[in-house]
């Protein structure tokens, strides 16, 4: 996706959709304006602004998505146990109702901001921005954004994070990537959670889950793990360590990233075949009250 306006125009489709942005007149005399902006441009603009905040403080932001009940909060609890002496962590929790998940995270001694979306089935960049007002990013290394449990809607909204992580629990079907291609196509890492149950579930094949992910042209790593027994957790923790380090390194050399799916589009975007994104220029140095709760 284009970093300037959030459009999806690539060399592959630009001959099919060409706008001149000029005012023309239709046969009936109505004024016609060719626009070509993303329907999500308001969200995308806010997302870039959020990412500016994260990047300014060298914080890696990860968007955790999955079905309800696949173990996102349990994974975060084990992750905090493993990393809290090494990194400063905070969590933004998205749920339709209750502060239950945020309380579980706070019990681990980590700051958690709960966003209750009411009836909204996904987080958007504006909600995350509101949450950022309650979070002091300066001392942090990593922010996990636990999205609303839903494999459909969250996939469409850039939150200003850097990577998408999708959990697929082994109690679900191994064909979930084929059923929810928009979500799984965009993932940068697929975690097969509750792997301790594989021993009693003969109908979930991790190799098949990976096959369906590859069919979406996605080369993301796949890690089976269990937050309960700790199996596979070391691989996930290593992945996190590596990403935090790389993120700080990247920012030090002036490089910025957006979630994978967009940098692909960016790569294809006419005239720019460099995966490094040009920083987005707009005034983000306004005085936010970043209060630590």
């Amino acid at each position: 996706m284009c970093d300037t306006c959030g459009c999806n125009i690539t060399p592959g489709n630009k001959h099919l959709i060409q706008a001149n942005g000029k005012l023309a007149t239709t046969e009936s005399g109505a004024a016609a304006v060719d626009v070509l902006t993303s329907l999500l441009s308001e969200n995308d603009h806010q997302a870039m602004h959020n990412r500016d905040h994260f990047d300014k403080h060298q914080v890696l932001a990860l968007n955790l998505m999955s079905s309800p009940g696949s173990g996102k909060t349990a994974l975060l609890e084990s992750t905090i146990d493993a990393l809290k002496d090494e990194f400063n962590i905070a969590v933004i929790e998205g749920d339709l109702e209750t502060e239950n998940d945020a309380e579980r995270i706070r019990a681990k001694g980590v700051t958690a901001i709960q966003i209750t979306t009411g009836s909204a089935c996904h987080l958007d960049a504006h909600m995350v921005h509101d949450a950022l007002h309650h979070l002091n990013l300066a001392p942090l290394d990593i922010v996990f954004i636990e999205n609303v449990g839903n494999l459909v809607c969250p996939a469409s909204f850039d939150l200003g994070h850097h990577y998408n992580i999708t959990l697929l629990s082994v109690t679900e079907g191994d064909d979930k990537p084929a059923k929810y291609p928009v979500m799984f196509r965009a993932t940068d890492l697929m975690l097969l959670s509750k792997s301790d149950l594989l021993a009693v579930l003969d109908d979930f094949d991790p190799a098949k889950a990976e096959h369906y992910l590859r069919q979406l042209a996605n080369a993301a790593p796949v890690i089976p793990l269990s937050a309960k027994t700790g199996d596979g957790l070391a691989l996930w923790i290593d992945w996190l360590r590596k990403q935090i380090k790389q993120h700080k390194h990247r920012l030090a050399s002036g490089e910025r990233i957006t979630p994978d799916i967009q940098s692909d589009g960016q790569h294809y975007h006419s005239g720019n075949h460099d995966n490094k994104l040009t920083p987005h220029h707009h005034a983000h140095d306004h005085n936010h009250e970043h209060v630590k709760l």
């Binding site: 690539t10 060399p11 959709i17 109505a30 004024a31 016609a32 304006v33 059923k179 790569h267």
Partner: peptide
């Protein structure tokens, strides 16, 4: 849900069309 190459069958592909979400044109009365 099958974004593999139709010619050689490999999955190392890049999407070039199909994920558009665009406001293309607006016609209005002035």
């Amino acid at each position: 849900n099958r974004l593999v190459c139709g010619l050689c069958g490999d999955w190392h592909t890049e999407l070039i069309a199909g994920d558009e979400l665009l406001l293309e044109r607006v016609e209005m009365r002035t």
